[in-house]
Design a protein around this nucleic acid. Sequence first.
RNA 1: GCCAAGGUGGCAGAAUGGUUAAUGCGACGGACUGCAGAUCCGUUUCCUGGGGGUUCGAUUCCCUCCCUUGGCUCCA
Length: 481
Amino acid sequence: MRRFQLYDSLSRSTRLFVPITPPRVGLFVCGLTPYADAHIGHARTAVTFDVVARALRRWGYRVFYVQNVTNLDDHMIERGGQEGTEPLLLAERKFAAYRASMARLGVSSVDLYPFATDYVPEILAQTKALVEKGFAYPSDGSVYYEVAKFANYGKLSGQRREEQRPGTRVETEPGKRAPEDFVIWKAAHPGEPSWESPWGPGRPGWHIEDTAITLRLMGDRYDLHGGGLELKFPHHEGEIALAEATTGSAPLVNYWMHAGLLTLKGEKMAKSLGNVVGLEETLDRFGPDTLRFFYLNAHYRSPLDFEEGKSLEEAREAYGRLSLPLERIREELRTGGAAREGSELPEELSAEAEALPGRLDDALAIDFNTREAIALLFGWVSRLGELAPRWEELSGGALDALESPYRWAKQVLGLFADPEGGSDVDLSPLVEVALAARKRARARGDFAEADRIREELRAAGVLVEDEGERSRWRLAPAGDA
RNA sequence: GCCAAGGUGGCAGAAUGGUUAAUGCGACGGACUGCAGAUCCGUUUCCUGGGGGUUCGAUUCCCUCCCUUGGCUCCA
C-alpha cells in the first residue's frame, strides 16, 4: 500500500492517511436526491471521488465505496406531485438516468448506491436509541434531535449555534425545543409514503439516513467521508452528532474530504438557483473526456468557475493536444506495430517512460493533485512531439513504453478511455476514397480542388493533415466549433 | 453578524522559506507545408489582493484589513 497525504477538513490540515483496518478502506460520499436531472456541478463531485477511489485501488487499498441516494424527501414528494408520479418511482427513474450519465462519464468506482428507504428499520432503531439516550425527543408525531445535548456539535464546521443569525430560512417549527434542533423522523401527511413507527406514520429525516446506512455497512467508525463543500454544515455536522451520540464512539470518520463547488459566473450552480448546466447535454456536446479534463485540471478543493463558450472549449484544446500522440501510438499498435521489430527508444526516454507512472503517483499522493499530474503528462507529450517523425519505425516494445503513462492516466484519472460509442459505420473506406481523389488533385497541382476536398471533409467532421505525400485523417473532437 | 473556502500573468490554474513562480489556453515570430493542420524552436521582460511583522531571505509563516464565493437547517 502506498502512503499518501490528504487534506482533512475536520482537523484543517494535510495528514498522512492511515486506514483503520488496512488494506480495507471505507469511503462514503453523500449522493444525490434524484428529483431532477444531474448537472455538471454534481458531476464534479462524482469525478473527484471517482479519482480518489481509483487512486486508492491502484495503490493497493481495498476500497468499499458507498454513495447514498435520498430517494424520499420534501423535494421528491413535491416534484412527484407536480408530475403526477409516485415519489419513489420518480426517484427510481431519475436515478437510472443518473447512473447512465455516470457510466458515460466513466465514473465506475462506486460499489453500492443504497436507497434511503431501504434502511427504514435501521433508521427507526437508531431513532429509538437516540430517544432512549436522551439525545432526541418526540413531538407531534415527529422526532427531533436536540443539538444542545451533543457537546461536540460544531467541531467540523466551526459553527457555534449561539453565534448564528436566526435567518429567515430557519423555520421555528412549533414542535422544536430549539431552532437548531433538526428532524430525524418526520410525521407523514396523508397520502405521502410512510412507515409505521412508535410515534405514528412517518418517514426519515435527512441527516439520519446517511448514518443509518454507514453504521450498518461500515460500522461505528470508518475511514473517509466525502461530499460537496456546501454539505459541511449542517448535513455533515448532523451526521457526526447523530452517529457519535448513537454509538458513543468517536470519531465517526477519520478523514473528511470536501470538494470545491462549481460556479457559474462566480455563483454556485444549484437546482434551486436555476443556473444549472445539464450533464447529459454537456456530455452530448463535448464528450466525457473533455469534461473530466476540465474538472481534473483544477485542484478538487478549489472553486471552479464554468464559463459558457469558454471553459470547455479551452479544455477541449488542451485535452486534444494531450491525446493526439496517443492516437498515433494506438494507430501504430493497431496496424501491426505491436509485433514490429523496429528501433528502440533512446535510453533516456525509455527510463523516463518507466519512471513517469511513479512520479504521477507521487503527484496524487499529496492531496490528489490532479493538476500536477496533468502537467507531468504535458511534459511527456512534449517529449513525444520531439519523436513524432519516426513513430512508424519504432518497435512494439517501444510503442508500449510510450503508451504507459497514458495507461496510468486511464486507470487513475479515467481519461483516454476508448472513444465513446463512436459511429457504427467504419468511415475509413469512404474517407480513403476522398483522400485518394485529393491526392491525385495534389499530384497534378490542382490545389484548389485539393483544398475543396479537405474543406468538405472538415465540414463533415473529418480533419485532414498532410505529412509530405501522405495524408492522415482523424475525427474532429466533440464540441461546438 | 458568525463559520468556512478562496484572491497568483491577457485567460485558466499549480507549487514552494531561497537560482529564471509549473503547466495549459491564447497571442506574436520562426522552421516545416503548395496553402493549412499537427509538430518543433523562440517570444509573451514589469504576475502572488493592501498594509504591517518574523527572517539573511516571504508568494509561502504570523497579525490585520479589503474583496469574492459558499454555509448559517433545501443543495454535489
